[in-house]
Amino acid sequence: MARSGAMGLTSAKQERAKPVGLYWKYLDDAVIAPINRVIGVIALLNIAVALLMALFYAPRETTMGDVQRIFYFHVPSAWIGFLAFFVVFLASLMYLLRRERKWDALALSAAEIGVVFTTLVLLTGPLWAKAAWGAFWVWDARLTTTLILWLIYIGYLMLRGSAEGERRARFSAVLGIVGFLDVPIIYISVTIWRTMHPTLIVGEAGGLAPQMTQTLMVALLSFTLLFAFLLIQRVRLEQARDQVNFLREAIG
């Protein structure tokens, strides 16, 4: 049987369905798979170093003791959550401007990862709070706005399961953009409202010790690399799904 073009499908069948190529030319498995493997390995090694630094290099905090070490992965989780939702915001804007499926796929991928990391924030924060404040949860401005952010993007993922096709992408893009407005509110919540949540002070008297800052930076880098790895994997998954849907449609 004569084969041509995408996914080895017969040419007559290809004509019946709109072919799905690569979202971006660098997303060819032959190119991106080895690069992403390297990113993944570096991220893992970096996380191991960050863990060792958090446990043995960073000094014990005098007031809170060892439970303060939660901070070295709590803050990077929050950073990745915000970064992921910023990607959702940008990709959603691009989708509304260009109506290209690749931007919708990128927004979905980043939203899913953002929810995972925000879940980590909401799991690790209360464990620290119990030791520091004596309660797992208080309706503090930063905690509440972070919970709202998590709920917005849980809603975003649920919306994607309810609507279909172009309508789904359009509605999701609008929610992805509007939902991101909560991120700057979370950031400034500790300054505009009276809040119990600590603020990060680096390089000033009474701020973090240099070893603490270095540990935090390594943890931030390791989670950023992990985010890059997961995002590439997730977008490749979405691309492969589209290609399979194309095959299904073509075969009938």
Partner: peptide, 11 residues
Amino acid sequence: MENLIIAYVLI
């Protein structure tokens, strides 16, 4: 200390 371990295990 237990909370720290629980947090890291959850992550």
